[in-house]
Protein backbone atom coordinates (compact mmCIF):
# COMPACT_ATOMS: atom_id res chain seq x y z
CA UNK A 1 0.00 0.00 0.00
CA UNK A 2 2.72 2.37 1.05
CA UNK A 3 4.66 1.52 -2.08
CA UNK A 4 1.67 2.27 -4.26
CA UNK A 5 1.11 5.63 -2.56
CA UNK A 6 4.77 6.54 -2.95
CA UNK A 7 4.78 5.33 -6.49
CA UNK A 8 1.65 7.27 -7.34
CA UNK A 9 3.10 10.30 -5.56
CA UNK A 10 6.25 10.16 -7.64
CA UNK A 11 4.27 9.96 -10.82
CA UNK A 12 2.05 12.85 -9.86
CA UNK A 13 5.12 14.85 -8.90
CA UNK A 14 6.68 14.05 -12.23
CA UNK A 15 3.65 15.11 -14.20
CA UNK A 16 3.44 18.33 -12.18
CA UNK A 17 7.12 19.00 -12.76
CA UNK A 18 6.68 18.56 -16.47
CA UNK A 19 3.62 20.76 -16.53
CA UNK A 20 5.65 23.39 -14.67
CA UNK A 21 8.44 23.03 -17.22
CA UNK A 22 5.91 23.51 -19.96
CA UNK A 23 4.51 26.63 -18.37
CA UNK A 24 7.86 28.24 -17.75
CA UNK A 25 9.53 27.27 -20.97
CA UNK A 26 9.27 28.92 -24.33
CA UNK A 27 9.78 25.51 -25.94
CA UNK A 28 6.32 24.28 -25.17
CA UNK A 29 6.19 21.48 -27.72
CA UNK A 30 9.46 19.87 -26.70
CA UNK A 31 8.76 20.14 -22.99
CA UNK A 32 5.24 18.84 -23.06
CA UNK A 33 6.19 16.01 -25.38
CA UNK A 34 9.04 15.03 -23.11
CA UNK A 35 6.72 15.15 -20.12
CA UNK A 36 4.10 13.04 -21.77
CA UNK A 37 6.70 10.59 -22.99
CA UNK A 38 8.06 10.08 -19.50
CA UNK A 39 4.59 9.81 -18.05
CA UNK A 40 3.72 7.29 -20.72
CA UNK A 41 6.80 5.18 -19.97
CA UNK A 42 5.82 5.09 -16.29
CA UNK A 43 2.32 4.16 -17.25
CA UNK A 44 3.47 1.32 -19.46
CA UNK A 45 5.80 0.00 -16.75
CA UNK A 46 2.91 -0.01 -14.32
CA UNK A 47 0.76 -1.81 -16.84
CA UNK A 48 3.35 -4.57 -17.10
CA UNK A 49 3.21 -5.07 -13.37
CA UNK A 50 -0.59 -5.23 -13.52
CA UNK A 51 -0.98 -1.98 -11.65
CA UNK A 52 -3.12 0.91 -12.83
CA UNK A 53 -1.14 4.12 -12.89
CA UNK A 54 -2.45 7.50 -11.83
CA UNK A 55 -1.97 8.56 -15.43
CA UNK A 56 -4.21 5.72 -16.57
CA UNK A 57 -7.02 7.01 -14.39
CA UNK A 58 -6.44 10.55 -15.64
CA UNK A 59 -6.33 9.35 -19.23
CA UNK A 60 -9.59 7.41 -18.83
CA UNK A 61 -11.19 10.50 -17.31
CA UNK A 62 -10.01 12.64 -20.21
CA UNK A 63 -11.34 10.12 -22.73
CA UNK A 64 -14.77 10.07 -21.09
CA UNK A 65 -14.75 13.88 -20.94
CA UNK A 66 -13.85 14.14 -24.63
CA UNK A 67 -16.70 11.79 -25.57
CA UNK A 68 -19.22 13.61 -23.37
CA UNK A 69 -18.22 17.08 -24.54
CA UNK A 70 -18.28 16.04 -28.21
CA UNK A 71 -21.69 14.45 -27.70
CA UNK A 72 -23.08 17.55 -26.02
CA UNK A 73 -21.58 19.85 -28.67
CA UNK A 74 -23.34 17.97 -31.47
CA UNK A 75 -26.57 17.34 -29.56
CA UNK A 76 -28.42 19.88 -31.72
CA UNK A 77 -27.87 17.70 -34.79
CA UNK A 78 -30.09 14.65 -34.48
CA UNK A 79 -28.15 11.39 -34.80
CA UNK A 80 -24.91 13.09 -35.78
CA UNK A 81 -22.42 12.11 -33.12
CA UNK A 82 -18.72 11.75 -32.45
CA UNK A 83 -19.14 9.05 -29.80
CA UNK A 84 -18.62 6.24 -32.36
CA UNK A 85 -15.54 7.99 -33.73
CA UNK A 86 -13.93 8.39 -30.32
CA UNK A 87 -14.90 4.88 -29.19
CA UNK A 88 -13.08 3.45 -32.21
CA UNK A 89 -10.06 5.74 -31.97
CA UNK A 90 -9.64 5.30 -28.22
CA UNK A 91 -9.89 1.52 -28.55
CA UNK A 92 -7.23 1.55 -31.27
CA UNK A 93 -4.86 3.85 -29.40
CA UNK A 94 -5.46 3.12 -25.74
CA UNK A 95 -6.41 -0.57 -25.83
CA UNK A 96 -7.62 -2.06 -22.55
CA UNK A 97 -8.47 1.33 -21.05
CA UNK A 98 -11.63 1.37 -23.16
CA UNK A 99 -12.93 -1.32 -20.79
CA UNK A 100 -13.25 1.42 -18.19
CA UNK A 101 -14.15 4.25 -20.54
CA UNK A 102 -17.28 2.53 -21.89
CA UNK A 103 -18.92 1.76 -18.50
CA UNK A 104 -18.01 5.23 -17.21
CA UNK A 105 -19.56 6.83 -20.29
CA UNK A 106 -22.72 4.71 -20.02
CA UNK A 107 -23.11 5.50 -16.31
CA UNK A 108 -22.65 9.24 -16.89
CA UNK A 109 -25.21 9.16 -19.70
CA UNK A 110 -27.68 7.44 -17.38
CA UNK A 111 -27.00 9.97 -14.64
CA UNK A 112 -27.54 12.90 -16.99
CA UNK A 113 -30.53 11.67 -19.00
CA UNK A 114 -32.09 9.10 -16.66
CA UNK A 115 -31.90 5.32 -16.62
CA UNK A 116 -34.62 4.61 -19.18
CA UNK A 117 -35.01 1.79 -21.68
CA UNK A 118 -32.58 3.53 -24.04
CA UNK A 119 -29.94 3.08 -21.35
CA UNK A 120 -30.31 -0.73 -21.54
CA UNK A 121 -29.50 -0.42 -25.25
CA UNK A 122 -26.30 1.45 -24.44
CA UNK A 123 -25.21 -1.44 -22.21
CA UNK A 124 -24.51 -3.63 -25.21
CA UNK A 125 -24.37 -1.28 -28.24
CA UNK A 126 -21.25 0.67 -27.24
CA UNK A 127 -19.33 -2.32 -25.84
CA UNK A 128 -20.05 -4.06 -29.16
CA UNK A 129 -18.48 -1.18 -31.10
CA UNK A 130 -15.43 -1.19 -28.82
CA UNK A 131 -15.14 -4.97 -29.30
CA UNK A 132 -15.32 -4.61 -33.09
CA UNK A 133 -12.70 -1.84 -33.02
CA UNK A 134 -10.43 -4.02 -30.88
CA UNK A 135 -10.86 -7.05 -33.15
CA UNK A 136 -9.87 -4.98 -36.20
CA UNK A 137 -7.31 -2.84 -34.36
CA UNK A 138 -4.55 -3.67 -36.87
CA UNK A 139 -6.50 -2.03 -39.68
CA UNK A 140 -5.13 1.34 -40.73
CA UNK A 141 -7.35 2.13 -43.69
CA UNK A 142 -9.47 5.22 -43.26
CA UNK A 143 -12.01 3.61 -45.60
CA UNK A 144 -12.24 0.51 -43.46
CA UNK A 145 -12.99 2.51 -40.33
CA UNK A 146 -15.40 4.80 -42.18
CA UNK A 147 -17.35 1.80 -43.46
CA UNK A 148 -17.35 0.09 -40.06
CA UNK A 149 -18.50 3.28 -38.34
CA UNK A 150 -21.22 3.81 -40.97
CA UNK A 151 -22.40 0.20 -40.61
CA UNK A 152 -22.63 0.67 -36.85
CA UNK A 153 -24.72 3.82 -37.35
CA UNK A 154 -27.00 2.11 -39.86
CA UNK A 155 -27.54 -0.86 -37.56
CA UNK A 156 -27.88 1.16 -34.35
CA UNK A 157 -31.68 1.14 -34.49
CA UNK A 158 -31.70 -2.58 -35.23
CA UNK A 159 -29.52 -3.22 -32.18
CA UNK A 160 -31.67 -0.97 -30.04
CA UNK A 161 -34.86 -2.80 -31.09
CA UNK A 162 -33.84 -5.86 -29.06
CA UNK A 163 -35.38 -4.66 -25.76
CA UNK A 164 -38.67 -4.03 -27.59
CA UNK A 165 -38.66 -7.63 -28.82
CA UNK A 166 -38.21 -8.81 -25.24
CA UNK A 167 -40.88 -6.44 -23.88
CA UNK A 168 -43.32 -7.34 -26.68
CA UNK A 169 -42.81 -11.02 -26.01
CA UNK A 170 -43.14 -10.60 -22.25
CA UNK A 171 -46.35 -8.60 -22.66
CA UNK A 172 -48.15 -11.74 -23.75
CA UNK A 173 -47.51 -11.45 -27.49
CA UNK A 174 -45.07 -14.36 -27.46
CA UNK A 175 -42.11 -14.47 -29.79
CA UNK A 176 -44.14 -13.33 -32.81
CA UNK A 177 -45.60 -10.39 -30.88
CA UNK A 178 -42.16 -9.44 -29.64
CA UNK A 179 -40.61 -9.61 -33.09
CA UNK A 180 -43.48 -7.55 -34.52
CA UNK A 181 -43.06 -4.91 -31.81
CA UNK A 182 -39.29 -4.76 -32.33
CA UNK A 183 -39.63 -4.66 -36.11
CA UNK A 184 -42.19 -1.81 -36.01
CA UNK A 185 -39.99 0.17 -33.66
CA UNK A 186 -36.92 -0.38 -35.84
CA UNK A 187 -38.68 0.49 -39.11
CA UNK A 188 -40.10 3.73 -37.65
CA UNK A 189 -36.56 4.95 -36.95
CA UNK A 190 -34.88 3.91 -40.21
CA UNK A 191 -34.57 7.48 -41.58
CA UNK A 192 -32.63 8.39 -38.44
CA UNK A 193 -30.46 5.28 -38.75
CA UNK A 194 -29.56 6.33 -42.28
CA UNK A 195 -28.68 9.82 -40.99
CA UNK A 196 -26.60 8.16 -38.27
CA UNK A 197 -24.75 5.92 -40.73
CA UNK A 198 -24.01 8.68 -43.24
CA UNK A 199 -22.93 11.02 -40.44
CA UNK A 200 -20.58 8.41 -38.98
CA UNK A 201 -19.10 7.73 -42.41
CA UNK A 202 -18.42 11.39 -43.17
CA UNK A 203 -17.03 12.16 -39.71
CA UNK A 204 -14.67 9.18 -39.75
CA UNK A 205 -13.55 9.92 -43.29
CA UNK A 206 -12.87 13.54 -42.37
CA UNK A 207 -11.35 13.18 -38.93
CA UNK A 208 -9.55 9.82 -38.88
CA UNK A 209 -6.35 10.95 -40.59
CA UNK A 210 -5.86 14.28 -38.79
CA UNK A 211 -6.64 12.80 -35.38
CA UNK A 212 -4.46 9.72 -35.95
CA UNK A 213 -1.74 12.05 -37.22
CA UNK A 214 -1.98 14.14 -34.07
CA UNK A 215 -1.81 10.99 -31.93
CA UNK A 216 1.25 9.75 -33.81
CA UNK A 217 2.97 13.13 -33.55
CA UNK A 218 3.04 12.40 -29.84
CA UNK A 219 5.39 9.56 -30.67
CA UNK A 220 5.08 7.80 -27.34
CA UNK A 221 1.71 6.41 -28.42
CA UNK A 222 2.15 3.08 -30.14
CA UNK A 223 -0.40 2.33 -32.84
CA UNK A 224 -1.81 -0.48 -30.74
CA UNK A 225 -0.81 -2.76 -27.92
Amino acid sequence: MRYIEMNAGCKVHMVLRNVACFCMSGHADIEIFTGFRKAWIYMERSRKTGEMAVQDIALIGVMVAVIEVSKAALAFLPNIELTSFWMILFTIFFGWRILLVVPAFILIEGTIYGFGLWWVMYLYAWPLLALLAWLFRKQESVWFWSILSAAFGLMFGFLCAIPYVVIGAADGGGLIGGLTAGFSWWVAGIPWDITHGVGNFVLMLTLYRPVCGAMRRLRFFPRQF
Binding site: S141, W143, F144, I147, A150, A151, L154, F183, S184, V187, A188, I190, P191, D193, I194, G197, V198, F201
Partner: peptide, 29 residues
Protein backbone atom coordinates in the same frame (compact mmCIF):
# COMPACT_ATOMS: atom_id res chain seq x y z
CA UNK B 1 -6.77 -5.01 -54.44
CA UNK B 2 -7.16 -2.44 -51.71
CA UNK B 3 -9.08 -0.09 -54.04
CA UNK B 4 -11.38 -2.94 -55.00
CA UNK B 5 -12.08 -3.66 -51.34
CA UNK B 6 -12.88 0.00 -50.71
CA UNK B 7 -15.24 0.13 -53.68
CA UNK B 8 -16.91 -3.10 -52.55
CA UNK B 9 -17.27 -1.78 -49.02
CA UNK B 10 -18.78 1.52 -50.12
CA UNK B 11 -21.06 -0.28 -52.58
CA UNK B 12 -22.21 -2.60 -49.79
CA UNK B 13 -23.04 0.45 -47.67
CA UNK B 14 -25.05 1.99 -50.50
CA UNK B 15 -26.94 -1.31 -50.96
CA UNK B 16 -27.71 -1.47 -47.23
CA UNK B 17 -28.95 2.14 -47.24
CA UNK B 18 -31.14 1.44 -50.29
CA UNK B 19 -32.50 -1.73 -48.65
CA UNK B 20 -33.30 0.19 -45.47
CA UNK B 21 -35.05 2.93 -47.45
CA UNK B 22 -37.20 0.33 -49.26
CA UNK B 23 -37.97 -1.43 -45.98
CA UNK B 24 -39.03 1.86 -44.45
CA UNK B 25 -41.30 2.78 -47.36
CA UNK B 26 -42.96 -0.62 -47.42
CA UNK B 27 -43.43 -1.28 -43.72
CA UNK B 28 -43.70 2.12 -42.05
CA UNK B 29 -46.99 2.97 -40.41
Amino acid sequence: KSSKKVILGVAALVVVIAALAILYNVFRE
